[in-house]
């Protein structure tokens, strides 16, 4: 049975989420494009994704598959030549794509916060870190400067920055990468948002620091009962931190489900390929694990059919002509012709 999340919103496919949960964010058929000299770049191409209250959803995929642009579409902060041209992003009763600039300013930082990938460049070099934390609270929580300062000091302490009072008036060049990311996290949590978008928050950090930062985000999100979209290309992080995982390829979703299910039982050849690089899972016997060869397709001129066929060892004529849609397999969903039970001969 082919199931389309868009046409049946009343019986949504939860993609492995607990059925009693309510969606906080619903992305429906999102198309985000960039106009370039080479043509239209389809960075996000018909992505649908629900985030349920309180869950941590991992969004994975190779570099360039549209993870960051998905998050920036939610925030309404796409770069100048980019635009979410079609679809809906529903959050707290509003379609974010239709919100005015003023409405978005009330949502950004206050209801949805984002932690960026690059702690080296994502903070203002000419402003004290204390002010960078406190200024958003002055706007969103209507705090006075002194109150905001006190709260910022508490936050600095809470995210594990030693002697916050001394550090408040420091500039970021006086901080290490890990410390900067702690400041970013303090900013993100400062106004108690409902939704956290963390875009590869540990990718740029030393391996030793990565785990600490990850734990910090997990701890704070849990403490605040926050919903989080955790963008990463590291399956290890997904295994340790997320409830569900969504796999993106060429701007679309190819697999989604509970982490345990997807990691142990990847249905999509692309997911299997991504997992091929995780050593602990490689030992599992009888699996068709392999590393993906080749490059992702050109987003200006996408191939017909399944967007993965150029690199897929199982591709056949049908794959080259018709694009598979997401379908339910057990607790998860995948978009691949070869995992449909009657045709799943190659497995």
């Amino acid at each position: 049975m082919a199931t389309d999340t868009s046409s049946q919103p009343e019986i949504p496919l939860t993609g492995g989420a607990a059925p009693d949960r309510k969606p906080l964010l619903r992305i429906h058929e999102l198309h985000t494009q960039f106009e370039t000299k080479q043509g239209t770049v389809r960075a996000v191409d018909g992505l649908s994704l629900d985030l349920y209250e309180g869950e941590v959803l991992g969004l994975v995929g190779e570099s360039g598959c549209g993870k960051t642009m998905t998050a920036l579409s939610i925030m309404g902060l796409l770069p100048g030549n980019g635009q979410a041209v079609a679809g809906e992003i529903n959050f707290e009763g509003k379609n974010l794509l239709q919100c005015s600039g003023e409405e978005m300013k009330k949502i950004r930082g206050a209801r949805i916060a984002m932690v960026f990938q690059e702690p080296m460049t994502a903070l203002t070099p000419t402003m004290t870190i204390g002010r960078q934390i406190s200024e958003a609270m002055e706007i969103h929580l209507a705090l006075g400067r002194e109150e905001a300062r006190e709260r910022a000091l508490e936050l600095l302490d809470h995210v594990g920055i030693p002697s916050p009072r001394a550090r408040f008036d420091n500039y970021i060049h006086q901080f290490s990468g890990g410390m900067r990311q702690r400041v970013m996290i303090a900013i993100a949590f400062s106004c108690q948002p409902r939704l956290l978008l963390a875009d590869e928050p540990t990718t740029a950090l030393d391996v030793t620091v990565q785990a600490q930062i990850l734990d910090l985000i997990k701890h704070l999100a849990q403490e605040a009962g926050m919903t989080a979209l955790f963008i990463t290309h590291d399956m290890g992080i997904v295994a340790g931190s997320c409830d569900r995982v969504a796999v993106m390829y060429a701007g679309r979703m190819v697999e989604i489900g509970p982490v345990d299910d997807v990691l142990l039982n990847p249905r999509h050849p692309y997911t299997q390929g991504l997992l091929g690089s995780v050593p602990s899972l490689e030992s599992k016997p009888g699996d068709r694990l392999y590393s993906i060869s080749g490059l992702p397709p050109d987003l200006v001129s996408l191939p017909t059919g399944c967007k993965f066929w150029l690199r897929c060892p199982l591709a056949d004529d049908r794959c080259r002509e018709d694009e598979p849609e997401l379908e339910q397999y057990g607790q998860s969903q995948a978009a691949c012709w070869k995992v449909m039970p009657p045709r799943d001969v190659a497995a």
């Binding site: 960026f116 000419t126 958003a136 706007i139």
Partner: peptide, 21 residues
């Protein structure tokens, strides 16, 4: 710059983004 995007992601009014960041 990334830090300007961060300032916007905090929901800062454009006037303050320019003046402070």
């Amino acid at each position: 710059k990334d830090f300007v995007r961060t300032a916007r992601a905090k929901g800062m009014p454009e006037r303050l983004v320019v003046a402070r960041h």
